[in-house]
Design a protein around this nucleic acid. Structure first.
Lengths: 235, 235
DNA sequence: GGACGCAACCTGTATATACAGCCCTGCGGA
DNA sequence: TCCGCAGGGCTGTATATACAGGTTGCGTCC
């Protein structure tokens, strides 16, 4: 039988991630020191060091030399490069993700949506979902989909599958445009994201194209104090 | 004088990067094996391994176990959220750009700036500039620079040269990190950007590294209603 | 001449060890 | 009581060493 093709340092990473995911260690919590990992898991310090170093690199942990290693708090997300699937991003940080479905329906398309998607029909599919990270609302996703591109859209359970994942499956993604801006939220958005009084919203407008046609338009509202886009370029 | 706080593995990375940048090694070319690096640079194999591994991680190289290490053909589809020189961006739109210099001075570094730049000195250079597009304020740029990296910073005329341009010239840029978030502006920022009552600010925190050290930290405030980041990917 | 097998070289991982530098706490002296 | 300093713990880096497993090419045997 294959002994264990999983490298030891990967096991150490999972060991740490599991405890973060379970909620045992929340943001800001202190993580075991390298020496403690060495004793607990019977690995060498170099191996523990590599595991922790890679978790730091991926943004899950942060370290302070001489002091300790800590669970990174929410707010720096992944590369702008891949404004990624929000669920994957949250899970990648070792946190729990929950999608709260506000609405999934077929509505008469507002004029601006009609124009953006160059709709040929009077109606459009719409979904409104709030994504929670560790039960704190992080993103309000309001999405409009051309019915001709994804006829089965209304039957999807968005509690378990993200709209992005579903669309990727039924319609080959050809092009994505993101526009990022800062706005002051309207009351409805502030309520759904449980925003404080003086909190702004980072709004990403995402338009996707499939098979040469506009496929969907999404408004992704993020709580200003709890979300940031992060990108690193090494030259 | 500080001896050389640059880690050895960083030097090895530079050794390899230099030869790639110079064109000596083009895409697909074979890179020295770890053993060759060991002999050539008199470092341990673990050190060479870490250097190469990190270059693989960042997409510069690719490895095939048992075969060798090669320069990756990077057609890295252009980073979607390009955060460009603001002056170039404005002029690229065919509009007039004017830089209003609010302050260029040497101040005692606030604690958070000290920490971010890992300053070894008590003071830091600071510049505050407002960039106008057609005489409408678009970006408030507050920048902190390590005096050791750019000793001549205070003598630059930021009315004609952007801080970014100057730094690019005197210090080879190695790494850039951007964090993008939405905030509600404090009064000073609102005034300098001539913001309306219910206007948010898109804040970009840009940290740059040069020669293995933190070089500068900049807060780029953008009027929410007048600025957006845009990125397109074609797949 | 062709196929097989082995040796040389490569990456990947793992360990033990060492030293430097930073941070914080607690103890002792003023 | 308060200040300063020493020590212990932590991260960061560097080295020597070892073994496993993939790849390639050369040489030998059939």
């Amino acid at each position: 039988m294959s002994a264990a093709p999983v490298p030891l340092y990967e096991k150490v990473k999972h060991h740490v991630l599991r405890r973060i995911r379970s909620g045992e260690w929340g943001p800001g919590a202190r993580v075991q020191s390298e020496h403690e990992l060495v004793r607990e898991l019977s690995v060498s310090r170099m191996t523990a060091n590599r595991a922790i170093r890679e978790l730091v690199q991926s943004g899950v942990l942060s370290r302070i030399a001489g002091s300790g290693t800590f669970v990174a708090d929410l707010r720096s997300a992944g590369h702008p490069l891949q404004i990624r699937n929000i669920a994957a991003e949250i899970r990648g940080r070792g946190h729990s993700h929950r999608a709260e479905v506000i609405a999934v329906d077929r509505i008469v398309a507002p004029a601006d949506i009609r124009a953006r998607l160059k709709l040929r029909t009077r109606h459009v599919f719409r979904s409104i979902v709030v994504h929670h990270e560790n039960d704190v609302p992080l993103q309000l996703e309001e999405r409009f989909v051309d019915p001709g591109v994804a006829p089965g859209y209304l039957d999807v359970d968005f509690g378990t599958v993200t709209a992005h994942e579903y669309l990727m499956e039924v319609a080959p993604l050809e092009r994505v445009e993101h526009v990022v801006r800062a706005v002051v939220p309207v009351a409805r958005v502030a309520r759904l994201l449980a925003l404080g009084a003086r909190e702004a919203v980072l709004l990403i407008e995402r338009t996707t194209w499939s098979r040469g046609r506009h496929a969907s338009f999404a408004l992704l509202h993020h709580a200003g104090g709890r979300f940031a886009l992060r990108g690193v370029f090494d030259l």
